[in-house]
Write a protein that binds this DNA or RNA. Structure first.
Lengths: 180, 180
DNA sequence: TTTAAAATGTAGCACTTGCTACATAAATAA
DNA sequence: TTATTTATGTAGCAAGTGCTACATTTTAAA
């Protein structure tokens, strides 16, 4: 890697950290520049415009999350244990900022705003793939259970955003009453 | 109702419509004023500040949604039919803007931003109450199934935001495989 | 060593944001 | 009719937004 690219990567790491800690809303060029220890002028030197910058930063954040998830990977689990397991995971202080950012991403994606929409789709795909790998079931079952797991975790994340923990517990209770 | 209050309500209706159609992001005082056919100056005459304005407008929107939902109410349905029923409902063009706004609300609520956080909690409560009324089950079951329904519908709304319809179908398929 | 390219600084533009100061016109109360 | 709220207009401020123009220094290629 050349010197320039190295510097760019250095800035990008710091920007990713800043976005993760403060959200998309706090991601103005000047804010990001300050967090990275440079100027907005320099950011537009390394990136063509803000859209390109955000695309690369968010992609990096998403890659980081995947790495974290892969590291926290266990052996495959049956569905009824997987959901509580993932609930614990998204409550983890390391993971939680990613979930909060994810909610912001979805809000923008729902308006087809770019680059957020396409990045959100990518992340969605990765997560379903991740669920699929974790579920203990045959392939035909996985096909249905991975999306179902995704949906339930997303829903839980939303309830968690409005401090509905007790409702989450009740729902998990209700879920465990079901059998195949 | 006095003349002033009447005028305020008139403006508020138009602002609610605008927010519903264009989202929170498009809700600057000047945008709202234009949509209501007045000036930002006048909005701050009727409301103390933007926070108060948003609080009242969003509360009204939420009340409108509840009215719509109540009108679309059927007889009580067992859980496994309720989820597909609600999925159809949130796909309804009349309801869909509310869901999109809801996603935006959640994103802000997750940062404890006011007035969004408290309003989102209120709406969450109403929706769980609504689910509870619709579910065909005894009270003890409802206690668990209403939050579970809420979670699943929220999750579906998120997947829908990133055009994951086929995954939603698979998940619903998977869900119907479960039995008590 | 000259030359081209990449890195960085300083200033600013045009626009949007919430909100305010200062005024006048209109409706209402005394 | 006078006095007092209430309604509305005009202008602007201070801060923030993405982005650009123009300059200079530093680095690397010839």
């Amino acid at each position: 890697m050349k010197k320039g690219e190295l510097r760019k990567q250095e800035l990008q790491d710091k920007m990713a950290k800043h976005i993760l800690e403060n959200g998309l809303q706090a991601g103005s060029l000047r804010n990001l520049a300050q967090a990275a220890g440079t100027s907005d002028r320099m950011l537009l030197h390394y990136y063509h415009d803000k859209e390109e910058l955000m695309k690369e930063v968010l992609t990096q954040i998403s890659d980081n999350l995947i790495t974290i998830l892969e590291q926290a990977r266990t052996v495959s689990i049956p569905f009824n244990q997987l959901v509580p397991h993932l609930y614990k995971l998204i409550k983890n202080p390391v993971v939680k900022p990613y979930i909060q950012l994810w909610l912001e991403l979805i809000a923008r994606a729902s308006k087809k705003e770019e680059p957020y929409h396409s990045i959100a789709k990518q992340i969605g795909d990765s997560f379903i793939h991740y669920c699929s790998e974790l579920i203990q079931a045959d392939d035909k079952e996985k096909e249905k259970l991975a999306p179902l797991t995704f949906i339930i975790i997303e829903g839980i994340a939303m309830l968690d955003a409005i401090d509905f923990e007790s409702n989450i517990e009740k729902a998990l209770d209700g879920l465990s009453d079901f059998k195949k």
